[in-house]
Design a protein around this nucleic acid. Structure first.
Lengths: 206, 206
DNA sequence: CACCCAATCGGACCATGGTCCGGTTAGTAA
DNA sequence: TTACTAACCGGACCATGGTCCGATTGGGTG
């Protein structure tokens, strides 16, 4: 564990201090309805009005609690994201600590690609809007990649490289490559592996 | 010139065969108004209704001619895009033919970053929607990068690498890095250079 | 138990991207 | 010149993400 996990926790779905009983009940209802509808019909085919109605809640409540469609999608995804972060921080190598940085990077990308493969639409919804790069989940991924890059090659501009490498794992590109181009998940993983090893090979003494 | 330019021309703003006089006049009016409004107030702050009104044209006409907001933005950008393609196909090295593939790749990314620096909002508007990757301009960029990668390193998966490298030049990321993070254009170019040389260094016999 | 206030609720409302179709007009042929 | 038709025009209309504010209610306090 080379950084404290506490500082980079998930977005707080749980409220700050106190929460009124009706508010808590509505939050749960909304998340439950959203989860169900997204799952049933695909995240792209569910409107916010429908979610509000299914949750038995007004539209105002829905938006006050979750701010935006993207934010709601992120909240629905938070459980999976939590699992991923857990695996990164305390899980088995190569995703977790213990393996060389290069292998951890490859494992991280593969894990993200797996997540994209099962939740691409939800991730796409979560990635819309300019707040995307400020979202806690993205920050965690970025920091993780930055630190691994710096560890693997102290000479590289890890901050910039992390940003551009993560761009390759965006949901929009993923969906296009898989659906429109018919590229397999395996090939995407292979490409990620190739890109990481090419990026880091310079650091290894030949 | 290692590929025929004709096959990869710009999206046809010019109509197929014949165009009625009123249609031609309206197309010109729309493009002119859009150019002016985008320029005056930033592409993000102009609605389609405003463009239609400024052009003295109904909303239906606007959408029939250009299909979508993204498509209109792309049409407004087409002149710059044409210049870029001209420079790539027939211009001076290293952007044009003649330089080593690696240097041409670096020059291409820098040219795109320059374009982003002056037209980021317009490019952002043009990049919204799933049609983004099917747009003729993107196809040209992709093909260019694919061919240069294959030339520089025949062993690489040039198709996939091109896609992920181009993701690093997306307008959304660019705007975030420049505005929210305050990263200079020079550093972005430097990062692109680093990423390309790292990606291709493996091909050079050490 | 009664009171009070702040937090919450919810639906009416708005802006905007995009669609549709009845009316109009440009170009053609006689 | 006139008649005809296909293309075009434009504004009413729709769906949806997001905002606002008056009404409501939870829960602490005397």
């Amino acid at each position: 564990m080379y950084y404290m996990s506490a500082a980079f926790d998930l977005p707080q779905i749980e409220p700050d201090g106190f929460e009124r009983a009706d508010a808590a009940r509505n939050r749960e209802r909304i998340l439950c309805a959203a989860r169900r509808l997204f799952d049933e019909r695909g995240a792209g085919c569910v409107s916010m009005d429908e979610i509000a109605e299914a949750a038995g809640v007004g539209k105002g409540t829905l938006f006050r609690r979750f701010g935006s469609r993207a934010s709601l999608a992120a909240a629905v995804l938070s459980e999976r994201e939590r699992d991923l972060q857990e695996a990164i921080i305390r899980g088995e190598p190569p995703l977790g600590p213990g393996a060389p940085a290069c292998e951890r990077l490859i494992a991280f990308g593969e894990a993200l690609l797996d997540m994209l493969d099962t939740h691409s639409e939800l991730l796409l919804a979560a990635e819309t809007g300019p707040a995307r790069f400020e979202h806690p989940a993205y920050r965690v991924h970025r920091l993780h990649v930055v630190l691994l890059l710096a560890e693997a090659d102290p000479d590289c501009d890890s901050e910039m490289l992390a940003e551009t490498l993560l761009a390759a794992l965006g949901a929009e590109l993923f969906i296009y490559l898989r659906r429109a181009r018919g590229i397999s998940l395996a090939r995407l993983k292979e490409a990620w592996r190739e890109q990481i090893s090419r990026t880091l090979v310079a650091a290894e003494p030949v």
